[in-house]
Nucleic acid binder design. Structure first.
Lengths: 334, 334
DNA sequence: CTTCTATGCGCAAACGTTTGCCCTGTTTCT
DNA sequence: AGAAACAGGGCAAACGTTTGCGCATAGAAG
């Protein structure tokens, strides 16, 4: 009634040894055609599902068909899209995906890393919380394949796939400048994340190229969450000599900034122009439609999963590093 | 170098039997103080971590400290928020969360359900793909605690926590009617999901209350994804005698509908009024701000996790059913 | 008619735990 | 003093797999 069937049950019912059943399942060894058919039939009848736990226990090495993905914030659409990319690839290869959300919290990150190890996943995909993340390095040392996404680790020996944040920010700010703006505020990310730093570098380089001197009072740093975007935009726009354009370094903060702008009753783009990093759900039907740099989040996830799968089947292969190009989508907000 | 230590290694080094070590770890049985100290010391020296896989294999019942959450679509913000609710509760109780995304695909749902069972999670939280979901029922029969969220199962014996979809839709459509509309189009969800049906019932009841006769040509059914919202809104608005207001039954379809409206160049709310189900990221700063019914997604997840935890520690407790109230947020789109 | 090689399958060990049972001392009770 | 109770800890079975080895049977080669 409640017992879920095991190899033994199948074997008994098909009048063969458990090893035969095992071999039928795994397509290993030579098994006669009719025996195979009989075993298959019984498996169907009983609704037999191999017990992954037992399987993993036995074959310490060898695929457990489990991938781990640890993301900073599931509410950030960028990571949701990325997760979909990973998931689709995993599913196609019959891997299940263990997804965890660490909420930018180092303790939680470590907790989940531990869990994944003791679950003995085949490999882990993670955007490290910062560049010298000891917990991640420990996992690597234990021999678990790891690929970094979005953010990288200073240790250069890992597979990674990122977006070219510098180019993305550069293009965005070049565009703002081309529109005639000279006082451009920026709401950046944390400087200890590679994404935060690279995007800021793009902002600075665009200024240098155009021969515009940087004003430090126009540069603010948030934490990639919505409320910080709102607060910083408010600060920036309440200055006595406010910027005429804003560059916001991620999607959540962009949403916050737009709230601040609405609260202040400013008109986009006349009173304040704005371009964001990350596509937003309603960006194209917003009024006005939002100019943003779109990151290929889904593709990042997809490539990362493919890289991870490759490494799992050949742990000795040299590390590769992918850099995908973001795309500036010019709409009406700047 | 690479061998991770097992109970046996610890036992050998501490000159005791493996069962003693096990008992020290689990605080079960009587073990002398000094033996305990010695074993503890050796464990630290060796950096011993119990192998969760082996442990789970042995103790089929008994907490594995793993919860499963299977959601239809991670890109739907409602489910992302819900997941956060579950995750926060789980983490607080030191449970890890295994999260999977089944993409409204029944095959995938079954696949992940299988995975979770063979991972022998302690319990599963899931919005069943439809009301007589045999895969879910099978899991229940196997004795795994399950709580349904968002959507329910016709089998009434399960814990569940849902939102009162009927009230939500009723309030929304009442509001639309109060604004003077008589031809109200609806973009509903699949009728084999309880959410789809309940929301439609709210739509119909509001009409009945106001004595407005239903026009079947104004009622369309999508699949809760963005493109269907767009297509159906387009259909509805291209009719010779189009509706003056739209009620859209989830967030993703709402986004699609807004795209269609923008493409058609219609002005909200003058040419077409609209109210949606689910809060959207930019809803409050949209132009005009969007009137929506907000579901307490985070709370749903939180309650579900708490319920699941309770059931895990007492599988005999009677099933409880929670119904949370959604909230109509009146802004400017209707 | 032997000997050989495949083929098909069973046997049993192993993976790292948990746990019921049993054995040996020591203490306590009567 | 003898019995009973208990504390401390060892033994070995079990969980559901995978897999090396070995044993039949059969046809092919000699």
């Amino acid at each position: 009634m409640k017992n879920i069937p095991s190899l033994i049950d199948v074997a008994r019912r098909a009048k063969v040894n458990i090893s035969t059943v095992s071999r039928v399942i795994n397509q290993t060894g030579k098994i006669g055609a009719e025996t195979q058919a009989r075993v298959r039939k019984v498996m169907r009848e009983l609704g037999y599902k191999p017990n992954r736990v037992a399987r993993r226990l036995r074959t310490q090495e060898g695929s457990t068909h489990l991938l781990g993905l640890i993301i900073p914030n599931i509410q950030n659409l960028f990571f949701a899209d990325l997760a979909r990319g990973v998931e689709d690839v995993a599913y196609k290869h019959n891997f299940a995906l263990l997804l965890c959300n660490y909420d930018e919290d180092e303790l939680k990150e470590r907790f989940y890393l531990d869990v994944m190890q003791s679950e003995s996943v085949d490999g882990i995909i993670i955007p490290p919380i910062h560049e010298t993340d000891p917990a991640v390095l420990q996992v690597v040392r234990n021999g678990t394949p790891v690929v970094c996404v979005d953010r990288s680790l200073s240790n250069g020996t890992l597979d990674k796939v990122e977006v070219d944040n510098h180019i993305g920010a550069l293009k965005a700010v070049e565009h703002i400048i081309a529109r005639g703006h000279r006082r451009i505020g920026v709401i950046g990310g944390p400087l200890d994340s590679s994404t935060g730093r690279e995007r800021l570098r793009g902002y600075k380089d665009a200024h240098a190229q155009a021969g515009i001197t940087l004003k430090s009072e126009l540069i603010r740093f948030g934490d990639f969450k919505q409320t910080s975007g709102q607060a910083l935009a408010h600060e920036l726009l309440s200055m006595s000599d406010p910027p005429t354009a804003l560059f916001v370094c991620n999607g959540l903060m962009m949403a916050g900034a737009l709230e601040a702008i609405a609260a202040l009753g400013l008109k986009i783009p006349r009173q304040i122009a704005i371009v964001g990093f990350d596509e937003l759900t309603l960006a194209d039907v917003f009024n006005p439609p939002l100019t943003v740099v779109r990151q290929p989040a889904y593709e990042v996830g997809k490539c990362a999963a493919e890289l991870l799968l490759k490494r799992i089947e050949d742990p000795k292969r040299p590390a590769s590093s992918l850099k995908l190009l973001p795309e500036l989508i010019v709409r009406k907000s700047c």
